Amino acid sequence: MSIRVAVNGYGVIGKRVADAVRLMPDMDLVGVADVASDWRIRTAVGLDIDVYAATTPATAAMREAGVSMAGSLADLLGQIDVVVDTTPKKVAATNLPSYRAAGVKAVLQGGESHATTGHSFVAQANYASAVGRDLTRVVSCNTTSMVRVLGALQGAGLLARARGVLIRRATDPGESHQGGIMNTLVPESTIPSHQGPDAQTVLPDLDVVTIAAKASHTQTHAHFWTLQLTRSASRQEVLEALRAAPRIAFIRMTDGLTALNTTVELMRDLGRPRGDMWEVALWEDVLSVAEAEAFLTYQVHNEAIVVPETIDAIRALSGTVTDGATSIAMTDKALGMRHRFLPAPVRLHDRVH
């Protein structure tokens, strides 16, 4: 039996989650709810997705705008097993009483606090602890990337502590006309920035400190890490630990992927929906290891990276798949995720003459 899913909030993350749910062989998207009545929700109608009004004022606004509605949020909640709340920061917490009253399980996003759900989620790290729960929170885009990369090295017994600098995009591309940062860089006011403690809600034993800043661009985030290893190791050992982890894809400067925008363009050329990159893109040829220290950098597509984690969280809460690796494989296959975006180069002596 398919998991019946609703998405509350059809914005940057919500529309991507809705599309991903529709691709899953074991899920049905019953509908989406929102308060908007403009082009964003009309897009959902055009995709034959049932639209529900999230609030009473939204019902009136949608009716006035001529948006075809299937009912209210309460109507939607009465038909589903799991709701994914992708509403703006702090709104989801106010929706929890409605979800509890309807008896549905809920997946929240990283804009909510860990205290709101009592559980934070990244599939490769703690899938089992979410199985059967009523509520979880998929951590933010940057935190997700940290748990994937640093967790892979910690799981391999290689990571002692991590110190990172995060250069964050100023705003989402679709909202850049509403404001942002121009011709400057804005450091976050505290060290550590919130991403380090957030990662520890998933990996409590992770020794990590993060420093962050917002820069005047809208395409993805960049991370720069200095890692203290548990022992002297080779570059190959570090690479092998990362290659064994899911949802990390390797890119190379020597392929011309020398900046954030080049990888964004590659996703478009690969035909990714909306140019999405669900994987962490790690520069393989930049990674350096010196005895017990490693240095690496990677790219995070903030609009897309949490989508596969959200799909896995749906399965975990519903209890239909109890093994994390199985769910990850199902999600990754349906989305078409990769460990490499480009074919391996052919050496001269391998060519057929």
Rank of each mutant, 00 (worst) to 15 (best):
R231D: 09
S232N: 05
A233C: 14
A233I: 02
A233V: 07
A233D: 12
S234H: 12
S234G: 15
S234E: 13
S234F: 09
S234K: 14
R235F: 02
R235P: 01
R235D: 03
R235I: 00
Q236L: 11
Q236G: 12
E237F: 11
E237N: 11
E237Q: 15
V238I: 10
V238H: 02
V238R: 04
V238M: 04
V238T: 05
L239H: 07
L239Q: 02
L239S: 05
L239G: 01
L239A: 00
L239C: 01
E240K: 06
E240C: 05
E240I: 06
A241G: 09
A241N: 08
A241D: 10
A241I: 06
L242E: 07
L242G: 08
L242C: 06
L242N: 07
R243P: 01
A244C: 04
P246C: 04
P246K: 07
P246F: 01
R247M: 10
R247T: 14
R247A: 12
R247S: 10
I248K: 01
I248F: 00
I248Q: 01
I248M: 00
I248N: 02
I248G: 00
I248V: 01
A249D: 13
A249V: 08
A249C: 15
F250N: 08
F250Q: 05
I251M: 10
R252P: 14
R252Y: 14
R252M: 08
R252F: 07
M253I: 09
M253C: 12
T254L: 04
T254P: 00
T254Q: 12
T254K: 11
T254R: 15
D255M: 14
G256L: 07
G256W: 10
L257E: 04
L257D: 04
L257T: 03
L257M: 15
T258G: 05
T258I: 06
T258K: 15
T258A: 13
T258C: 13
A259P: 04
A259N: 14
A259T: 08
A259S: 14
N261E: 15
T262I: 05
T262A: 14
T262R: 13
T263S: 13
T263A: 12
T263E: 07
T263G: 04
V264R: 13
V264M: 11
V264N: 06
E265D: 15
E265K: 14
L266I: 14
L266F: 14
M267P: 03
M267L: 09
R268M: 03
R268S: 03
R268N: 12
R268A: 04
D269R: 15
D269L: 11
D269S: 14
D269E: 15
L270W: 12
L270A: 02
L270M: 13
L270S: 10
L270F: 07
L270Y: 09
G271S: 13
R272Y: 06
R272A: 13
R274A: 11
R274L: 09
R274M: 08
R274T: 00
R274N: 07
G275D: 03
G275W: 03
G275F: 01
G275H: 04
G275C: 00
G275T: 02
D276E: 11
D276W: 14
D276G: 04
M277H: 09
M277A: 13
M277I: 09
W278N: 10
W278D: 06
E279C: 09
E279S: 05
V280E: 03
V280W: 02
A281Q: 06
L282T: 00
L282F: 02
L282P: 00
W283E: 01
W283A: 00
W283D: 02
E284Q: 08
